[in-house]
Design a protein around this nucleic acid. Structure first.
Lengths: 218, 218
DNA sequence: GATTGTCAAATTGTATCCAATCAGTATTTG
DNA sequence: CAAATACTGATTGGATACAATTTGACAATC
């Protein structure tokens, strides 16, 4: 199945192809939380043996996408309200701190790119998938000016792991759509000012404004 | 080799035993940065096949302990000054934020335990290994009152990955030894006050006071 | 009727075998 | 003699085979 993609990616290891495939399935929500992740069928579907699938599953487990239960099938990780709060606070702490660097390092070109990404984000409000993608691009545009590779990687990891829940939130209450452009605009102002404290504070507040309870019916 | 430990851990999977073994070797510094991590000899040494070793290596790679080079032997990750700064800033951001929760949640019993851990830390100043262990315990005593499991886990991960470099620093300049008790004491005061802002600020400053340049000769 | 025991299907965990890849060295060739 | 090339040893990457474990169903028992 999907021979062309397989051929195109032939140079990369089977494991990383499998990992990328599963990551996309989970991020997109096609494999929802709780879905069993069984090695054998996936291996057959992608035309590889179980071994690289196992390793891919473990890799995803380390990123938090799946949960491995010893001697039982792994499952797509299901996050509860507490877990989401946890992840969002982590991201607030890290991405807030990252903005200190960004505010001090960003140049005219960076500002321009962020403004462009912001416009695209505004245009993307009609479609959930489009919006999520544009939202990623906007945040990444800012993080490009944070010279801390591991920090940025961790921030992205968290964003990706929580992506299905952002999608749910966008589809459920439209509030997220409405607020978000103004917030992102204020955020950009703060970064433009070059004041680390202000940039950090703005990013923190922006991320923590995400209301988990919209998704999880009490 | 080491039959008793093997028997004791028989209930757990070979993979996790191997992972734990390697993690300890690396954290302790017995396997220094740059050391090749070859599957076959380790497998033989521990009396298992190469497969669980492979998976253990990959698990460690996801935590940052080793670096996998495609089709070449993996190596123990070697961090440069920039990487260490990166990791310490991440920890500052996260553990600082965690202290907001701790300051608000800690009770009399928690304070007491932290004070005890602080005394033990002070006693441990003569020996590097002892000190590192006591330092871990002190920080964990505080983090026990942060109700954000994933955040705490990530903080610990960073602390463990940087452990060999802390050891180097302790052995090299003794400054870290000297400053640290006072700092930790001030930190505990801030937590005791219950003020989130103050607790966060104190923890951040404490962590960022770590001077990387002591290790890396310019 | 509830509980326990046993068996079978599904799935993971581990071992072993073979192919692919890379680093370094020897060797050829201009 | 220098540069390109071909070989060799070491090591990983992947596939297949098999053992161990768990789950659930169904039957036996109290």
């Amino acid at each position: 199945m999907n021979k062309y993609a397989a051929v195109q990616d032939q140079h990369r290891s089977a494991q990383s192809r499998v990992a990328e495939y599963l990551r996309q399935e989970i991020r997109s929500g096609r494999m929802a939380g709780g879905t069993p992740v069984v090695a054998a069928p996936i291996a057959e579907h992608l035309g590889v043996s179980r071994m690289p699938v196992r390793e891919a599953i473990q890799q995803l487990a380390n990123d938090g996408f799946v949960t491995i239960r010893s001697n039982r099938s792994a499952v797509v990780t299901e996050f509860g309200p507490g877990d989401i709060a946890d992840l969002y606070e982590m991201r607030a702490a890290l991405e807030g701190y990252a903005m200190r660097h960004v505010a001090q390092n960003i140049d005219a070109r960076g500002i321009q790119e962020a403004e462009l990404a912001l416009m695209r984000l505004d245009q993307a409000r009609e479609d959930v998938n489009w919006f999520v993608s544009a939202h990623d691009i906007y945040h990444d545009a800012l993080l490009a000016y944070c010279p801390r590779a591991q920090m940025v990687e961790e921030i992205r990891r968290i964003r990706h792991v929580t992506e299905p829940y952002l999608r749910l939130n966008l589809r459920a209450g439209l509030t997220a759509f409405a607020n978000t452009t103004d917030e992102h605009s204020e955020l950009l102002d703060a970064v433009r000012s070059g004041e680390p404290d202000r940039a950090e504070d703005e990013m923190r507040r922006h991320i923590l404004r995400f209301d988990v309870r919209e998704i999880f019916p009490a």
